[in-house]
Nucleic acid binder design. Sequence first.
DNA 1: GCAATAGTGTCTCTTAGACAGTATGAG
DNA 2: CTCATACTGTCTAAGAGACACTATTGC
Lengths: 250, 250
Amino acid sequence: MNEQEFLAAYDPGAYPSVAVTVDVVALTIRDGALHLLLIQRGQPPFEGHWALPGGFVRPDEDLTAGARRELAEETGLGGVRLRRVHLEQLGSYGAPDRDPRMRVVSVAHLAFAPDLPDPAAGTDADAAIWLPVTALTSRQLAFDHSRIIDEGLERARSKLEYTPLATRFLAAEFTISELRAVYETVWGHPLHAGNFHRKVLSVPGFVESTGTSTERGGARGGPRARLYRAGDARLLHPALLRPAREETVR
Amino acid sequence: MNEQEFLAAYDPGAYPSVAVTVDVVALTIRDGALHLLLIQRGQPPFEGHWALPGGFVRPDEDLTAGARRELAEETGLGGVRLRRVHLEQLGSYGAPDRDPRMRVVSVAHLAFAPDLPDPAAGTDADAAIWLPVTALTSRQLAFDHSRIIDEGLERARSKLEYTPLATRFLAAEFTISELRAVYETVWGHPLHAGNFHRKVLSVPGFVESTGTSTERGGARGGPRARLYRAGDARLLHPALLRPAREETVR
DNA sequence: GCAATAGTGTCTCTTAGACAGTATGAG
DNA sequence: CTCATACTGTCTAAGAGACACTATTGC
């Protein structure tokens, strides 16, 4: 914020120009597994590789608005269903050599979506799919998207601890078991059903009862479950902490 | 990531160009109060207003490297002392109208520094000061820096809960009381000395004993305090949670 | 009937926090 | 001496997690 800016006011070419993109790590749960929205690149560089949905931020749109637009384009979603998707900024990635063509700073976002239909092919011809995150290791991802995804997944795991955002993976009404399945899927390990149940109901504002129950019991038997919807809490207190593993702490 | 990019590979003028700056919310503790590094702008827009230190990211530097460079320029720091400063990315701010001259996306960073000398006037002629954060309300800040500072302060308060970064506000060796003063200053309310003491020592890897003590007791009497240095933990487990206030949760 | 599930009760261990108490050392 | 401070002991309440148990449903 010095002379350079002053000059820039009169000569827009005097500042170092950078391309800014928005990318989205969009997560959903399908068939009991965590899935990630990816597109297959149709052009070089990284032609044929998988990449995060994203694109250049437009002149008149905010960063988060750009991310929401990109998500809408790739999923074919709109209106109410898109509004149920949680979207937050994840971080910016701007290593000078991350794109071989030019200096690109990517503002990555993180999205939590309820189970969505298969992506409609967007305005562009790139193939888009929901890919299980367990299948990621064998894929060659474009740019530094592998790292962005890693940080997005860790953010997601962490967010489930202290926010009620797990409900964003579910329909408007859900059972405690379905909510538990979200935690188990995102955290990757089983939880104790009874303790989880009591814990969720004890956190103020996490869920509120609808007064109704499911029409049927579980697929393999069991009583009908009560239905809940998301409560008004924005933070969980006390939080639902993952069991701490020593290796993550040091 | 579509045709536009493909074109851009051949015509660097085809993508929407944006200026990218790095700004730094640099915090330190002086005289028992939390201080923030600000510079006074010498040019329009917002001439005479206070602003965060920052500037354009250079073509061959990473975002965080740019933030560290800006911090070094404004504080006159270098070498070992700069390396003791904690620096992390806070978030990016890119509302289309945040800078009246052109589209600017700012990648904000958050820095925790031990008590530093008064800023040397940097390469530019802008005045730089450490301002107590309590004095911020009466100041007109440039751009959206007021919001960036708010989010930086909240991030700082939150980070003290689950990371050992409070030690970054202190010298390499410190007493438990000094550490408690950091928490009290950043969180803005007093803590129980005895319980804090026991809690800090019980968290694995938070602090480790140096085996030495201070030369003198406190200014108003009392025994000499043992000295500690930062331990090897990167996360505190269990965390030191702020007492939850209902209004922050809803 | 059998097996799986929803939901509740109870016990133990850990932790947070309130409070008290002792030793030390500056003024 | 006085008093603030460093540090420790003890008690209580809350919460996490293990385990057990009942009731309900699909097959």
